[in-house]
Amino acid sequence: MNQFFRIKPFYPACLALLLAGAPAAAQENRFVIEPSGDGFVRLDSHTGEISVCSDVEGQIVCRMAADERRALEEEIDLLEERIAVLEQTLAERPGGPESRFPTDEEIDRTFGVMEKLMRRFLGVMEDIEKDNSGRIPGTDAPDRT
Rank of each mutant, 00 (worst) to 15 (best):
R120H: 11
T89M: 11
C62A: 14
D67E: 01
G39M: 03
P23Y: 13
F121H: 08
N29G: 10
L15C: 08
I33Y: 04
I107Y: 13
D55C: 10
A91P: 00
Q59I: 02
D44G: 01
G134E: 03
M118T: 05
S54T: 08
R119P: 01
G39T: 00
E129D: 10
A13I: 14
R42G: 08
L72E: 15
A91G: 04
K130E: 08
K130F: 14
R119G: 05
N2L: 15
E75W: 04
R82G: 02
S54L: 13
C62Q: 05
A26Q: 07
C14L: 14
L17I: 03
E87I: 02
G96L: 07
L19K: 02
G112H: 06
Q59N: 06
P102V: 05
M1D: 10
E75S: 10
D38T: 07
M114I: 10
R120Q: 07
C62T: 12
P9T: 15
Q59S: 08
G21M: 09
E98V: 05
S36I: 05
L18H: 12
E106Q: 06
P35T: 04
L15G: 11
R119F: 15
A16I: 09
R135C: 15
N2S: 14
E129K: 13
V124Y: 07
T110D: 10
S45P: 02
R30L: 02
M118S: 09
I76L: 09
K116Y: 15
I76M: 08
V85F: 14
S51C: 02
F40K: 00
R6G: 15
E106N: 01
R119Q: 03
A91N: 02
